[in-house]
Design a protein around this nucleic acid. Structure first.
Lengths: 202, 202
DNA sequence: GTCTATAGAAAGATAGAC
DNA sequence: GTCTATCTTTCTATAGAC
């Protein structure tokens, strides 16, 4: 048996358990989710859960990996347009990913558990945010090669600033469950403007 | 009796309870902190806690308010220097506040509980982040008045972008408990450079 | 205000039948 | 693999003495 238990072939009960665990972990958090409630929601017995997953921790980790794959699937756009147009499309796609209820809930619970389970936080970061970030940095680098953006700063740094400005207000408030102060479209527009002013073709 | 229980005069036992609650809530989270463990750590009986606080929720809220006052005391700098120098000092002070272990832990647990306790998240935001943000926006506005920064964009928007870029990588990784990818000083330097390139005097 | 003692419910995990 | 039943511990909150 080479594969670990948590990567076993999908079965109906196993998927039902993961679905239930996802709903509860993302809704009420790790500690407040009981294995009993997962069993009830999944329509199985608690013993069946332990037949598929060694512990509550491993169930949580399996749920997180499955959701990361689904929540951070960033689709890079064509980058044949000018900088402003390309960055705007990236911003729209990224922000709609980030402020989706599922992605927010996953981020909340991973942040909450990062002190208790550091390797989990690391796995999350490398399975989720880093992938989107590297995809965006590659596009920024190509914009620099084409002269659409000045190459006076590292593409990764510009990408970090890009994502940081996008997450500044809209995302921060959404993460705390507060109503938006500004429309997301406005945040996107001002972010792109600022980047183009700083790094756009002169 | 006008004042609510959670604002009663400080007593030795009450402070000990709050100290213990803070240590545990910030360390292991809300759900994983038991009233028993708070009592033991504070050196009091559990009944004494309930004599001072109506419930676990109210104990948490009292702890949060006390820590917000301590963790978000942003001291605005002189703003008689040029934009780059002023922004650098602000960035240094803000980032050292934000990535302090206490502020990170408080943010983690408030984010984690924001779905369960929305009014708590709101109180946190208004007692903590908003205060620092408005203090910074006021300085940005004065820099604009003095012509150190162009007034082509709202001071609040520039402030959001400023804070967003600062929190982008250093803070994001710190929040997840991951080692820093770059020194904070570098993030500060590139952030200030970008803002000055976009909004600095021509 | 502060304590001891405890009620009553619920937690994570397992034994053993099938 | 899946179930019922249960072990053992721990949880929030309270009763009642002082």
């Amino acid at each position: 048996m080479l594969k670990p238990k948590t990567r076993a072939k999908p079965s109906a009960k196993r998927e039902a358990i993961l679905d239930a665990a996802q709903g509860l972990f993302l809704d009420v958090g790790y500690a407040a989710t009981s294995m009993d409630s997962v069993a009830t929601l999944a329509g199985v017995s608690k013993a069946t859960i332990y037949a598929h997953f060694d512990s509550k921790d491993q169930l949580f980790a399996a749920m997180m990996h499955r959701r990361c794959d689904a929540s951070f699937a960033f689709v890079p756009p064509d980058d044949t347009s000018d900088a402003a147009r390309t960055l705007t499309i990236i911003a729209e796609r990224l922000l709609s990913l980030l402020i989706s209820p599922e992605a927010l809930a996953l981020y909340r619970v991973v942040v909450a558990e990062s002190a208790r389970a550091p390797e989990l936080a690391k796995a999350f970061y490398e399975t989720g945010p880093i992938r989107a970030k590297e995809a965006i940095a590659a596009i920024v680098a190509r914009l620099q090669l084409r002269g659409e953006l000045l190459a006076i700063q590292d593409a990764m740094v510009i990408t970090d600033q890009f994502i940081g400005m996008l997450r500044a207000e809209t995302y921060h408030r959404a993460l705390l469950g507060l109503p938006a102060a500004r429309p997301a479209a406005q945040t996107i527009a001002t972010t792109v403007e600022t980047l183009v002013r700083a790094y756009g073709r002169r």
